[in-house]
């Protein structure tokens, strides 16, 4: 099976004042294309650190990371930016939309960075906002949307440029259970309909229940890796 993410002996240490913190240690991980993976574990277990390393947002202290056939750990900052732009989508806990842009403009932002022409950007943004159920709300700014709606815009933004991998960090943490459920259904739909790989870091049971594969982390190590269905 074609692998989307491969980690070998991945480790990350932080220095906090005089103390060295081992955030990740010896992580070996293979995530096939089209998988729906949930990283779970208590706070400080290394979930967000692992996502950051896979997404090229942070550099590992040791080991190798390969995403879509490219060695992330060997890339320059410019190459990492290009890889994030062309291959990855991110969904964050706090929605993290650009507050001065409307829902449509937030979705178009990534495509603008990709250099896509205006007509195609508009069409794609309209289509994906329809897919996430935000038809008619395209011209609202984030402050005029509910938390659930904002997170759906964030998912639309992550998906619109056709990434092969979406990394989501606690995407339902700020949502009520109904909105959380809707969001997960949406992600599953994207995963099954478009074959996009999802890696979601969470400590919520609701998310874990939706995952095809559940990886548990503890003190920076993988303690279990189970297929759920």
């Amino acid at each position: 099976m074609e692998q989307n993410v491969i980690c070998r002996g991945l480790s990350k240490t932080y220095q906090q004042d005089a103390i060295i913190v081992q955030a990740l240690s010896g992580i070996d991980l293979d995530v096939p294309k089209g998988d729906f993976v949930c990283l779970s574990g208590p706070s400080g277990s290394g979930k967000t650190t692992l996502l950051n390393l896979v997404g090229g947002l942070d550099a590992p202290t040791g080991g190798e990371i390969t995403v879509a056939g490219q060695r992330v750990d060997l890339m320059s900052q410019a190459q990492l930016a290009t890889m994030r732009l062309m291959h990855l989508g991110f969904v964050f806990q706090a929605y993290n939309l650009i507050p001065v842009l409307t829902a449509r403009e937030n979705v178009e932002f990534v495509m603008q960075l990709q250099g896509m022409d205006r007509k195609e950007r508009r069409a794609r943004a309209r289509a994906i906002l329809e897919d996430v159920g935000l038809e008619g709300l395209e011209n609202r700014r984030p402050a005029q949307l509910s938390g659930g709606q904002q997170q759906r815009v964030a998912v639309a933004r992550a998906m619109v440029s056709g990434p092969s991998l979406v990394l989501a960090d606690e995407p339902t943490a700020n949502l009520d259970s109904r909105n959380g459920e809707m969001l997960l259904e949406l992600m599953r739909k994207m995963n099954e309909g478009r074959g996009v790989t999802f890696i979601i870091a969470t400590h919520e049971q609701l998310v874990m229940d939706h995952a095809r594969r559940l990886i548990r982390l503890h003190d920076g190590r993988i303690v279990s890796d189970e297929l759920q269905r």
Binding site: A81, I98, V110
Partner: peptide, 16 residues
């Protein structure tokens, strides 16, 4: 700073 971090994460280059 946080917003710029998000933009960088989305693939914007620092120069942009």
């Amino acid at each position: 700073t946080r917003e710029f971090g998000i933009m960088l994460a989305l693939g914007a280059r620092p120069g942009r």
